[in-house]
Amino acid sequence: MSLITCKNLSFEYEGVPAVTDLNFSVSDGDYLCIVGENGSGKSTLIKGLLRLKKASQGEIILDHELSPDEIGYLPQQTAIQKDFPASVYEVVLSGCLNSLGLKPFFTRKEKNIAKSNMEKMGILHMKNACYCELSGGQQQRVLLARALCATKKIIVLDEPVSGLDPIVTQELYEIIEHINNVHKITIVMVSHDIKAAVKYASHILHLHNSQLFFGITEDYIQSDIGKKYIGEFV
């Protein structure tokens, strides 16, 4: 079953094409890594999948059971968040907003979902801590827990390990793998880290303002583009 299918998808910024003619699909349970150099259109594509940016051409078809509001999102950190006074619990709970409908307040149901996701991420013990006083790795776990609150099926991660030290990076990759394997959440991740991408992902999408490769990771490693790109980083 294909959760997301993109057909001839293109994006542009004020007439300048950012990324053109994408054709790929994400199936239930996949772990897709989107790789490519800076400015190759990776983040633009993510914004498109989340409907933060309109496609200039083509279409994104979602499985009928997947509402566009139910894609969990782990964005790149913004400057505002660095000194934002909010507790871990408040941040995680805000991920449940999309299931609230027109109700103004959270009920026990949402609070329990938030708690169970904090438990999954191992941050329940710090639920009253201030988000701004956590380490980078802990902050990413908080945002992951929030993303899990917003979805039952798929999360989209935009460079989740940027700025983290190697040990914490490794930990975060293992958590994401765990979410994919155990909780059966589909992963779509933008990454700079090609080595980790081919190690963990089931599928690779390589962009350079257009689609250079899409397929399973084993094929990517054997392909010319894959060999060249992985070679540059080893």
Binding site: L50, R51, L52, S67, P68, D69, E70, I71, G72, Y73, P75, T78, I80, Q81, F84, A86, E90, V91, L93, S94, G95, L97, N98, L100, P104, F105, F106, R146, A147, A150
Partner: peptide
């Protein structure tokens, strides 16, 4: 303010996330 408090928090903390999840 009271009725929209939770949404105001979400929009203030992370506008992109709030928008992506349908706020």
């Amino acid at each position: 303010f009271v009725l929209t408090y939770n949404r105001i928090f979400a929009v203030t903390f992370d506008e992109n996330f709030a928008k992506a999840t349908g706020t």
